[in-house]
């Protein structure tokens, strides 16, 4: 009699161990990859969408990021910070995609709608903020997304974007200030 046992639960395993399993046998590597996918898919997906602001490109980069993660592991790379590593893959792919599309629609001149005549609902305000994020320059938008969407520390952000910690902190600070400026006409709603 044969029983098909369910896979051992990998949810408690650290990233580095799962990454190491990617170099193992097919069954182990598949399970480890799927667990890593479960952990990072929504984060990478959000990052790609926020950075590229183009659905098709974001999907391509998102998929390519995970494929490269797996293939990179098969080449016996050592790993100490998987979060930084996978975001760097996504970032590099995103920047390449942006460079390939110089004809991307410019957001210059796009402004946040003003609702001075009425009170905004909470959801509307949140949508306005999300819209303002998309108007930020790439370097600020990226830092803001990593900080607020991905809950990264400034050290992690610095590692992903390849800057100093102070520079990462400055980018986030300026991103927030820029968003506030964009939303200024609506800020009185916060009183």
């Amino acid at each position: 009699m044969r029983f098909r046992l369910s896979s051992p639960n990998l949810t408690g395993r650290p990233d580095a161990e799962l990454y190491g399993m990617l170099r193992g046998g097919r069954s182990d590597s598949e399970r480890a990859f799927k667990e890593l996918y479960r952990r990072y898919a929504s984060r990478i997906h959000a990052y790609c969408y926020k950075i590229l602001d183009n659905r098709e490109d974001a999907e391509d980069v998102f998929q390519e990021t995970f494929v490269r993660l797996y293939l990179g592991a098969r080449e016996h790379r050592e790993m100490t910070n998987l979060t930084g590593y996978i975001f760097r893959i996504a970032r590099n792919l995103s920047l390449n995609r942006i460079r390939d599309h110089d004809d991307l629609e410019s957001l210059e001149g796009v402004e946040i709608p003003i609702h001075a005549d009425r009170s905004l609902e909470d959801g509307e305000l949140l949508d306005l903020i999300a819209g303002a994020v998309e108007l930020l320059d790439l370097e600020f938008r990226e830092a803001f997304v990593l900080r607020e969407y991905e809950n990264m520390s400034y050290e992690q952000i610095a590692e992903v974007v390849g800057s100093s910690v102070a520079n990462a902190k400055s980018r986030v600070f300026r991103a927030r200030r820029k968003i506030r400026k964009l939303l200024e006409p609506n800020i009185k709603e916060l009183d």
Binding site: R43, Y49, V133, V145, Y149, I187, L190
Partner: peptide, 18 residues
């Protein structure tokens, strides 16, 4: 506003599930 930015991110990230 800063707190709303954080809230917006948390609110928004759910919309980006692959």
């Amino acid at each position: 506003l800063l707190m709303l930015m954080q809230k917006s991110a948390a609110h928004d990230v759910g919309a980006y599930m692959p």
